[in-house]
Design a protein around this nucleic acid. Structure first.
Lengths: 222, 222
DNA sequence: ATTAAAACTAAGGGATTTACTTAGAGATGT
DNA sequence: ACATCTCTAAGTAAATCCCTTAGTTTTAAT
């Protein structure tokens, strides 16, 4: 193997980037060509050094990892994205895949060997998922098959409008209905309606559930 | 230096343990003598191998890292605990110190060099804090100086009672006042009182703030 | 052992907010 | 042009908040 696989590491924790970097140095077919702590920096570096594989976390300051993946996928389709996240929930995995990620590994139980394998696999443009993730994905699929409505309908139903997203974000800030209404210059009742619609779309049974969901999906800070 | 500093790594992410382990191998005065993914395992290993330094994350499944630190500090006072956390908020730092941590490093901007320095420092029984953390700590102190009450009073004021913690956890589950009251077999008014006390202790301006705090402090799942 | 201080319990009562339903106006699309 | 989606909003009943007061029990201290 002549040319090494050039990897860019994106994670907001320096110590994790350093750790991974160290780890990957031992593989002689892989070369870490850079690291970034946030989405903006990552995009800059991608333009400059154009890596083969981008390994990224999902939860980061500023725009989320999902946005990063989407940008990369649109502007640099040749770069294969491998997600290394602490979250193994449906939302995260589903959104990462939808955004164009080629692989997904949990931080929890990914070994060095598995990481190397994953890098090599996605570098070839193939997909790689750990067992845990594969299980979640298959569950996602079986869900949409079982449902009476079409997958599109589910997607539509479960995706929020821009106004709803905006309001949801304000909820995660800890604002009350009244405060949100003031900020958006609309009636409290309208805010309430939007909230109800959000709750129904996702079958939340409480505001707290809604906020937790928003935090998991990077619509708000924990 | 004859005997190496024996380090036990506690973090629920295998890939991070591996990364740190790799990194520390390069220091010839430090030896990683084990790793654990949760509090229970960590305590087992501490008994068995009795390390010099325990490096731990704070957010972990099951009992929190804070509890781990407290146990170590009580049962094995000779073992110096170094916290490596993604959180740099007052609550976290304060509670870690109160539990007996000797050092605190943020995952965000800790370099390899700094980590090594921190390990060597706490191994001598001294304290080590990164600049960021030191700032937060000094702010904590200045706060308590300004306040009319004593530092102890503040500490007392800011720490929740077991009942309050229990109720806070139920809030993060998305339960309503009524549901919490039913589950604990107490009056709704009592639940309300506890909640008010929690909100006052931390000056939360909304339930959402309270729940976010609880999630940050691992009292509930995000 | 006596006292003081927290912790847990609970209620009153008015102000405010939220839950749930129903509904109209404007934009979008097919 | 017809259905659908989105954003808007109100009525009413139920829930929660806010602030205060207060009894009982547990815990810590002198």
């Amino acid at each position: 193997m002549k040319t090494k696989i050039r990897v860019l590491l994106v994670d907001d924790h320096q110590i994790i980037r350093d750790g991974l970097s160290n780890m990957l140095q031992e593989a002689d077919d892989i070369e870490v060509c850079g690291g970034a702590a946030d989405t903006a920096r990552a995009l800059e570096m991608v333009k400059k050094i154009s890596p083969d594989v981008l390994i990224t976390d999902l939860s980061m300051p500023g725009r989320s990892g999902i946005e990063l993946i989407r940008s990369i996928h649109e502007k640099h389709p040749g770069i294969n994205v491998l997600v290394l996240s602490m979250y193994v929930t449906e939302d995260y995995i589903f959104n990462a895949l939808k955004a164009g990620a080629k692989g997904y590994l949990p931080k929890q139980d990914t070994t060095k060997a598995e990481l190397l394998k994953a890098i090599r696999t996605v570098a070839r443009g193939e997909e790689f998922f750990s067992d845990t993730i594969a299980q979640v994905i298959s569950k996602l699929y079986s869900h949409s098959v079982k449902a009476t409505t079409t997958p599109e309908a589910i997607a539509r139903k479960a995706s929020l409008t821009s106004r709803e997203t905006e309001i949801l974000r304000l909820y995660t800030e800890g604002l009350s209905n009244t405060e949100i209404a003031e900020q958006l210059n609309i009636s409290i009742r309208t805010v309430e309606t939007h909230k109800n619609n959000i709750m129904q779309k996702y079958n939340f049974k409480s505001t707290v559930d809604m906020v937790k969901f928003a935090i998991r999906n990077n619509l708000g800070e924990a």
